[in-house]
Simulated scan of single mutants.
Amino acid sequence: MRIQRVPITHPDAQLLVEAVQEEYVARYGGRDESPITPSDFDDPQGQFFVGYVDGVPVTTGAWRRSTVVALGVDVTAEIKRMYVVPAQQRRGIARRMLAHLESTAAAAGVEGLVLETGLEQPEAIALYTSSGYEPVPGFGYYCGSDLSRTFGCRLHPVVE
């Protein structure tokens, strides 16, 4: 898999963002309404990535700086738009994208990552908890929703 940084407005990014929105409709009955803007993923605020297998866009992942304080760190970023197309799931692609998000965020000086997911995404919860993420106090657009689950992970500083 090749991971490339692109703007969220890139056609491949938009194709996959729409696919994940359709997944939310199937699982939750509606699109994700948490507010984002394209500039959330411009330096120094964040970064957006698309992963390609044989030249085909199959996964997205992004992070944007956050004001959430969690796990004893206050320089955090929020993971957004993690998605893998169904035909490529269960092949380690999401884990590779997550590792890429962690390393790029750490290289940008982020000390911890936080994320919001939902009970209707048990495979996402399993990915994050098996990758060392732990529950953190609720935050974000869906804070207080019975379906929302929030997780975080401290990052290891990049040594140059």
Rank of each mutant, 00 (worst) to 15 (best):
M1T: 13
M1H: 12
M1Y: 09
R2G: 06
Q4L: 11
V6S: 02
P7C: 08
P7S: 14
T9W: 10
T9P: 03
D12G: 01
D12M: 06
Q14M: 07
Q14P: 00
L16M: 03
E18F: 08
E18Q: 13
A19T: 01
Q21G: 15
Q21A: 14
Q21W: 09
Y24T: 08
V25P: 02
G29P: 01
G29R: 10
G30L: 07
D32A: 11
E33Y: 11
I36D: 08
T37K: 13
F41L: 02
P44Y: 03
G46I: 03
F49H: 03
F49R: 00
G51A: 15
D54W: 09
D54A: 15
V56N: 11
V56A: 14
P57K: 05
T60L: 03
T60E: 00
G61Q: 06
A62F: 01
W63Y: 14
R64C: 06
S66C: 10
V68S: 06
V68Q: 06
G72K: 07
V73P: 00
D74L: 09
T76G: 12
T76S: 14
A77K: 01
V84Y: 06
V85P: 01
V85Y: 06
V85C: 02
A87Y: 05
A87I: 09
R95N: 12
M97W: 11
A99K: 15
H100C: 09
H100V: 13
E102G: 07
A107Y: 06
G109K: 04
V110K: 02
V110H: 00
T117F: 02
G118F: 11
Q121K: 07
Q121E: 14
P122L: 12
A124T: 15
A126Q: 10
Y128G: 10
S130P: 04
S131T: 15
G132Q: 13
Y133R: 11
Y133F: 15
P135D: 07
P135V: 04
G138P: 05
G138F: 10
F139W: 03
G140E: 14
Y142R: 04
Y142D: 03
Y142G: 06
C143W: 14
C143F: 14
F151W: 01
G152Y: 05
G152K: 03
L155Q: 02
H156S: 13
V158K: 09
V158C: 04
